[in-house]
Design a protein around this nucleic acid. Structure first.
Length: 309
DNA sequence: AAGACGAAAGTGGTTGA
DNA sequence: TCAACAACTTTCGTCTT
């Protein structure tokens, strides 16, 4: 893997903290998420179309242990030096190889292909290994149950990854998954729901607070304001403002308010872009937060003190 | 001129008959 | 299977800074 960033590019601090669970490197001084999707393995990640993709894709993820046969498979004739074999053994060798080809079932071939795609997407999103393993497991189960039939392999891979992210509380938005995999958002959502239902995988509704660190760092919001936004989220959950709403919208609104309260104002548009929702949604959540949590008083106070505009 | 606000109409998904 | 429904988006006009 390429050399790691030793200093925070933002504040120059060396107090970097690697949160392996969430696949993020965080600067403890300024709160910036330093290494989030900042890898470049110098390979061609783009998919050109469903057909050409398999041929043009140059490589899977650099290294990983998630292999289709758990690394236990045998490939006949990988490195054998054929010239050293007599005619008889050579025949035997070819027969064996042909045989092996026949018994490698559709499932195995599918898995081999799918897992390399999975690794590619996972590494693009910098997902931790645990999530990658989990999604590989989910995908394998899906194939064994014949759930891939009628769906594109790539979309099931994306769905499995999304499910694994949710289970491990390392949320990535559908938009991010979509960008990384080249599959449409709704398609991912659909296969995700289908696969989890068919496999009986229960997923907790994702927690808005899980999105805060990434959104905040993208917006360069101070750690203090971040904690504030998490407080706000907790209160909001008590008031039952969160159920039924999109978690990203709520996280975005909480972040918007706390930035405001800390004199680090960001425009609704900026926050909306990072969170992948519209300004309107932020406004609606924001309004609810003000009403229910009596935050408007705090804002008025700050206005008097001229801390904020 | 840019940002915030809100109304109105449209979209995609869920739910319940 | 269809219609009602809630959440969210898009679009657009108005107000504020």
């Amino acid at each position: 893997m390429a050399d790691y960033i030793k200093k925070c590019p933002e504040c120059g601090g060396i107090n970097l903290f690697w949160n392996k669970e969430k696949g993020e490197v965080i600067c403890k001084d300024c709160g910036l998420v330093v290494e989030d999707k900042m890898v470049d393995f110098g390979q061609e990640w783009r998919e050109f179309d469903a057909e050409g993709g398999d041929k043009r894709r140059r490589a899977g993820a650099p290294t990983t242990y998630t292999q289709y046969d758990q690394g236990l498979g045998t490939e006949v004739g990988g490195k054998a030096d054929l010239s050293k074999l007599g005619a008889k053994s050579r025949n035997k060798f070819f027969r064996l190889r042909k045989w092996q080809y026949r018994i490698s079932t559709a499932i195995e071939r599918n898995l081999k292909l799918a897992l390399s795609e999975l690794k590619r997407v996972a590494s693009y999103l910098k997902l931790p290994r645990s999530v990658e393993e989990e999604s590989a497991r989910i995908y394998t189960l899906a194939v064994q149950r014949g759930l891939v039939r009628g769906r594109s392999m790539e979309s099931v891979v994306a769905g499995a990854l999304y499910a694994a992210c949710r289970r491990h509380e390392v949320p990535r938005t559908l938009d991010e998954l979509s960008e990384a995999s080249g599959i449409e958002k709704k398609e991912i959502g659909r296969t995700y729901r289908f696969v989890t239902r068919e496999l009986g995988i229960s997923i907790l509704p994702s927690n808005p607070a899980d999105y805060i660190p990434r959104f905040a760092s993208a917006l360069k919001i101070s750690p203090e304001a971040q904690s504030k936004s998490i407080e706000i989220l907790e209160k909001a959950q008590k008031e039952e403002l969160t159920s039924g709403r999109g978690p990203t919208g709520i996280a975005a609104a909480a972040l918007y308010v706390s930035a405001l309260l800390h004199g680090e104002k960001r425009t609704q548009r900026e926050v909306a872009d990072v969170a992948g929702v519209t300004e309107v949604t932020i406004r609606n959540r924001y309004k609810e937060l003000l009403e229910e949590l009596k935050l408007d008083r705090e804002i008025k106070k700050l206005k008097k003190k001229k801390i904020i505009a």
